[in-house]
Nucleic acid binder design. Sequence first.
DNA 1: GTTGACAAATGACACTGTGTCACATATAAT
DNA 2: ATTATATGTGACACAGTGTCATTTGTCAAC
Lengths: 203, 203
Amino acid sequence: MPTETFMKLSEEKKNKILVAAKKEFTRVPFEQTSIKNIVEDAEIARGSFYQYFTSKEDLLQYMMKDDKEKLDNFIKDKLKETHGDVFEAYLAIYDFITQKMGEDKDLAFYKRLIENAKVVEDESSMLRIPKDLKGPFQQEEFLKLIDVSKLQIQDEEELHIVIQMLYLVTRKALVNNFKYQSTEKARKEYLKMIDYLKNGVLK
Amino acid sequence: MPTETFMKLSEEKKNKILVAAKKEFTRVPFEQTSIKNIVEDAEIARGSFYQYFTSKEDLLQYMMKDDKEKLDNFIKDKLKETHGDVFEAYLAIYDFITQKMGEDKDLAFYKRLIENAKVVEDESSMLRIPKDLKGPFQQEEFLKLIDVSKLQIQDEEELHIVIQMLYLVTRKALVNNFKYQSTEKARKEYLKMIDYLKNGVLK
DNA sequence: GTTGACAAATGACACTGTGTCACATATAAT
DNA sequence: ATTATATGTGACACAGTGTCATTTGTCAAC
């Protein structure tokens, strides 16, 4: 999280930094981004950056905060709406991200966000993006909203496994959505994956 | 791939470089490794490294080549043995990696290999590890070995989707295997995931 | 309106790492 | 012995990092 100092900055200055950061985080994969480029573009001194943020990760995490909250609320609403259908909820997340977020010119930025997601989440200086996407469903609050009566789920552990699989498949579909030229193809594949997950691959 | 020059080196020298590389690739996640450490440890000049390899990626890829081939052959044999059961084949891959490879002291190195796998495979300078693991099943040769008669698969595209899902789930299980202290827990979860994939989550 | 004290901004500094290239040194071929 | 040709080398110019002593700004108290 940013420091007090950053928060107290004028909206104008904060914005200039955030715009420069978004530009840099959009330009190349996360590991290739540099603080140097951000401070130069935002026209602040190198030392100032460290007065505001502890690291690149810190800054990006802050930039994702709003989206994450939006997503959290969206999921909660959707789960209530569908009376606890996780599959519907994940499909809704998928559509939300590909459409609501894809509408504006920040598309390339979100593409990077998805790309930046690592397979392994727990290495010290690593981005927590996947955890954030999966996040809500790891919290009690969300789990309680899921209706397991129609599912072959015995205990909470099995529920976690199902969520894990749904998450994997959703992330993969999102990657494909940004990778393929065709949004349709990616969605069709995603629906098929969900279908397999619900009904199985065996005849 | 390494240059001719590297190949012509004495076994002793090649080995010294490979040992130093393995040490470095084991030490930290791939992005944090440095050529500097490798050349210092291997006691070769910085310039020499670039005479042998074009990059870190190049070197690591070369180091993985043998394992990849071993795995490819193993999969092919297993598919024939099981008369084309993809699920059995993937489970065998899982056991092969966690046991056959886990036997020796290179465990930490393989752990890193799995960690290094990226969600997105197609960015220019990115490691191709996931592609390599998934690789064989993208080739005609392997696809033909799979028996789809008992599966709900209409065309090749759907087969690819199933393989994609199996791959995702297997990689996740491998990550967990190295993450958990318990090898058993990871395998149990993996079996459950395969079960869900085969028979579906719905009642 | 001057002072002082605290907050914020700055960029030079010492590091670590990169890839390259002109030169040095082997090895082989004539 | 001479000339090619292949291989090895480390200094060099860059790019980026995080820190810190110093400067600059702000504002309340006198």
